[in-house]
Design a protein around this nucleic acid. Structure first.
Length: 878
RNA sequence: GGGCGCUUAGCGCAGCUGGUUUAGAGCAUCUGCCCUACAAGCAGAGGGUCGGCGGUUCGAAUCCGUCAGCGCCCACCA
């Protein structure tokens, strides 16, 4: 075996082994089910660091569940990602000189499917490189037949229940992709913009102006009124008057509403019902008409402006909204209708997908009534039927549900599930879409007979995602089938907090609506992977490493370990290659441990006293660590659990235990000790396996003969009961004894280091009581018990016991005295602190007796130590 | 504007209902070592008045208040 672990070949071989033996495949049986559904990545996406974090955590949970004897089933799949994919397909077609709207829906979908098949599933292949133990036989897609049927069925069902409706509403409109968005798809960002103060001439008082402050002067073409607060003093004179929209010439009334905030801006608000959510509300309240001045791609459309005003506005026709903003301001300036322009900070809504500025737009869309769902989904999370890790997200969740708004689920896209609503063709021709009567719409899973036209829209991607934990097991079409009954509810959901509303909350809603049960019992929210400067990783910054390159460099286990080591639930990770390096180094450590052990010859001799101590000690320590890891894992503290095993392996096992039992060069090791060592090694491999699957499976097959198809993922059947083992040393006295012994060894090594004495050179240790022969072995010294220490000795204290090492020519009395003096001061200061407590009557009276007792012991020990140090000082001074 | 959370060694963190030899690991740093498992390593070491101030208490990193800084989520002040 090479002295360096080489992951590439082993990873490929081990993964194939798992696949060949169908070790990830699950079918219902008598065992407890442990189900995880993957947050489906975009079908055409590629693996990034966020996935690495997310999927690694899921794999850890799933593999561990298998080891616990559960029937683990991790279902993979991909999401059709309606907007994102459609955009990519459009982009590719544009490159070929083809425009989407030159194609029929069918032609476009053909291209989209081609693209999906070409790029789809790349990410799933990449997950295999990472070691993900998904049940690939179950791979699903949100637009495959089963999932699509579920979506359509649910739509129809909710429509029947009156929970889905069609309505003309102000929605968030993405002018780039020309579709409606849900509120959640709009990202509000702070913006440095301008506040324009425009003069609206008052008709009744020529020469006087109402000044309106706006951030969007380009919308004045749609102004229908100017609103003031009836209580605002300075604007009283405007009551009942009319003003002229500057540059447009439209005469509009002054209206009054308390919505206008007194003291803000000029107190005059321009009302543009077609292009602002609030203005729309005002328009409704006062029955104002709307003039929509934008095309779907947010260019100016002057055709909607009154004919008599066309001459004034025609020049703006067809302009982009932002170009128009500049143009109209310039023109108004020329007419002296701009009073001033101020810098202004405000929030602007951007489309999550296209990054275009969202335009509020009046449009006919499909919505879900969300209050019903909020009602069924709030309780289970608040009372921890579904547990969030970390729990702080409960607040976020509650906040959203308590202020729920209806969900706009229709998109003006082709790639997605087409809305199963049908319109009578003749009637539609008569009424148009807007005026088509609701009661003449047929919502049905299959197209009705006759001359009907299907709704042009597709559904929001999340409308299929919210069914994922159910639809993966065909639980919508067949709510009582064996699989859904066995695998649902799933165990853990691992995802980012950024999709708590998009996905997590809605899955809970759908879960209760369609299965009457929670979709998962635990939700583990990961943090965001950032670069080491704390910046979010993004393609545009180019600060996101390619996980596959990292896997090549550090091995999948190394990358997994790196990303997990510093990833407490909900905390962001500052990614640094150094993390993967640490992971790789650890793999190497394990590898070399194995080489060492494997290289030993065994002999059927009696175990030495030292061996027996070492074995007993490590047995206790391992059992104790196993329990601690169980506890940490049950609290989803994965990085802490991992760190605990890491330390157990590197510090306790490699640095201490192996050195304790290591036979002299060329000598054999006692068979019994060897067997115990292999057991320890195997148990640690098992503990490590969920985190680093490849190397552990490989070595597991190397430490013993295994049947073909056997795996480290199998349930633990070793004769090993941690609780019973720990009970052998109920008060931890033996463990403490070894810890003290390690300190003695460190003490000697310390002296060596400070005196530059080579490890090879044997030293003498004077101890007041018998010490383990392991001290002799690990500190390379002879031990003299109870011997008077010579003046030229360096000493150290473990607990209250003094040990000394004669140094003869190496001693530096001044240095030694200085050290002792410093130690003495430290101890005296400590004692003083303890005494202060003990002399405080209120402490002695009020504190718990065991606390007082402890302080007394501290006092006693400190006094003991002080005495010892003083004696040493005296001896040295002689 | 509302809500939530954070502030502990150079860095990113742990420290649960206050008391466990006067704050813990990891990484990084420093010193010495190629000692026949591993230099992707070994043996040692240094480093923090627990954001500031006030309070409760015999006792506070831990509880309460307040101030400051940071972050996240939600929200229609044009």
């Amino acid at each position: 075996m090479e002295s360096k672990y080489n992951p590439t070949e082993i990873e490929a071989r081990r993964y194939q082994y798992w696949l060949d033996h169908k070790l990830f495949h699950s079918t219902p049986d008598g065992r407890e089910a442990f189900t995880v559904v993957i947050p489906p990545p975009n079908v055409t996406g590629v693996l990034h660091m966020g996935h690495v974090l997310n999927e690694t955590i899921q794999d850890v949970l799933v593999r561990r569940a298998r080891q616990q004897g559960k029937n683990a089933c991790w279902v993979p799949g991909t999401d059709h990602a309606s907007i994102a994919t459609e955009a990519k397909v459009i982009g590719r077609l544009e490159e070929q000189g083809i425009h989407k709207h030159d194609l029929t829906r069918e032609e476009f979908l053909k291209h989209a499917w081609d693209w999906t098949e070409e790029h789809g599933g790349i990410i799933l292949k990449q997950l295999r490189k990472l070691g993900c133990s998904c049940d690939w036989d179950r791979t699903a897609f949100t637009m495959d037949e089963t999932r699509s049927k579920a979506v359509i069925k649910v739509f129809c069902d909710l429509y029947k229940k009156g929970l889905i409706y069609r309505g003309l509403r102000m929605v968030n409109w993405d002018p780039k992709f020309q579709t409606a968005l849900s509120d959640e798809e709009v990202i509000h960002q702070d913006e440095h913009s301008k506040f324009y103060y425009l003069r609206y001439q008052v008709v009744e008082e020529p020469g006087k102006y109402a000044v309106v402050a706006t951030t969007r002067p380009e919308t004045i073409f749609g102004d229908i009124a100017v609103c003031i607060n009836p209580k605002e003093e300075k604007n009283q004179w405007l009551k009942g008057k009319h003003v002229v929209v500057p540059g447009v010439g439209r005469v509009i009334p002054i209206i009054e509403d308390r919505y206008v905030e007194i003291g803000f801006g000029t107190g005059c608000l321009k009302v543009t019902p077609a292009h602002d959510m609030n203005d729309y509300a005002l328009g409704q309240k006062y029955n104002l008409k709307t003039i929509d001045i934008f095309t779907p791609d947010a260019h100016l459309n002057m055709d909607t402006v009154e004919e008599e005003l066309q001459a004034n506005v025609r020049k703006y026709h067809g302009m982009d909204r932002f170009d128009c903003r500049k143009a109209i301001v310039e023109d108004l300036k020329a007419m002296d209708l701009v009073e001033k322009i101020e810098d202004y900070e405000n929030k602007v809504g951007y489309s999550q997908r296209s990054n275009a500025v969202v335009e509020p737009r009046l449009s006919l869309q499909w919505f879900i009534r969300m209050q019903h769902f909020a009602d069924i989904a709030l309780g289970p999370v608040m009372n921890d039927d579904i547990v969030f890790y970390p729990s702080k997200y409960k607040n976020t969740y509650r906040n959203w549900l308590e202020n729920i708004k209806d969900w706009c689920i229709s998109r003006q896209l082709w790639w997605g599930h087409r809305i199963p609503a049908y319109y009578d063709a003749d009637l539609l021709a008569e009424t148009g879409w807007d005026k088509y009567p609701d009661d003449k719409i047929i919502v049905s899973e299959t197209a009705p007979e006759g001359n009907y036209v299907q709704d042009e829209g597709a559904l929001d991607t999340w409308f299929s995602s919210w069914l994922w934990p159910i639809s993966l097991f065909d639980g919508i079409e067949h709510p009582d089938n064996d699989e859904i009954k066995y695998y649902y509810p799933t165990a853990d959901l691992v995802t980012g907090p950024d999709i708590i509303f998009f996905w997590v909350a809605r899955m809970i809603m759908a879960g209760y609506e369609y299965q009457g049960k929670m979709p998962f019992k635990h939700v583990y929210f990961t943090g965001i992977v950032r670069d080491k400067l704390g910046r979010k990783m993004s393609k545009s910054l180019g600060n996101s490493p390619d996980p596959l390159v990292l896997i090549d460099q550090y091995g999948a286990d190394g990358v997994r370990l790196g990303i997990l080591l510093s990833a407490p639930a909900g905390n962001d990770i500052l990614y640094d290659d150094a993390l993967c390096e640490q992971g790789r180094n650890f793999c190497n450590k394990i590898w070399n441990c194995f080489r060492l052990i494997k290289g030993w010859e065994t002999a059927d001799t009696e175990a030495s006293m030292g061996d027996r101590e070492a074995v007993t000690w490590f047995t206790l320590l391992l059992a104790k660590t196993e329990k601690e890891i169980d506890d940490l894992m049950s609290k989803y503290r994965l990085s802490e659990a991992l760190m605990l095993i890491y330390k157990l392996f590197t510090d306790e096992f490699s640095s201490w235990y192996l050195e304790m039992i290591k036979p002299a060069y060329g000598q054999p090791i006692c068979q019994k000790t060897y067997d115990s060592t292999l057991i320890f090694f195997e148990r640690m491999l098992r503990l490590l396996h969920p985190f680093m699957p490849f190397i552990t499976e490989e070595l597991w097959h190397n430490i013993a003969e295994r049947e073909d198809g056997a795996t480290i993922m199998s349930a633990d059947t070793m004769d090993w009961n941690a609780d019973e083992l720990i009970a052998m040393d109920p008060k931890g006295e033996f463990l403490q004894k070894i810890e003290d012994m390690k300190q003695v060894i460190t003490g000697v090594r310390n002296i060596r280091a400070s005196k530059n004495i080579a490890p090879k050179e044997q030293m003498t240790l004077i101890a007041p009581v018998e010490v383990s022969e392991l001290v002799r072995k690990l500190a390379n010294c002879t031990i003299e018990v109870g011997k008077e220490k010579p003046a030229t000795a360096a000493s150290f204290i473990v607990g209250t016991t003094e040990y000394s090492v004669p140094l003869d020519q190496f001693i530096n009395v001044d240095e030694e005295l200085q050290k002792l003096q410093a130690d003495l001061e430290h101890q005296e200061k400590f004692l003083k602190g303890v005494m202060a407590k003990l002399q405080n009557e209120r402490f002695v009276q009020n504190a718990k007796p065991e606390i007082v007792e402890l302080e007394r012991k501290k006092q006693h020990d400190a006094e003991q130590r002080i005495k010892t140090i003083q004696e040493s000082i005296a001896a040295l001074k002689k």
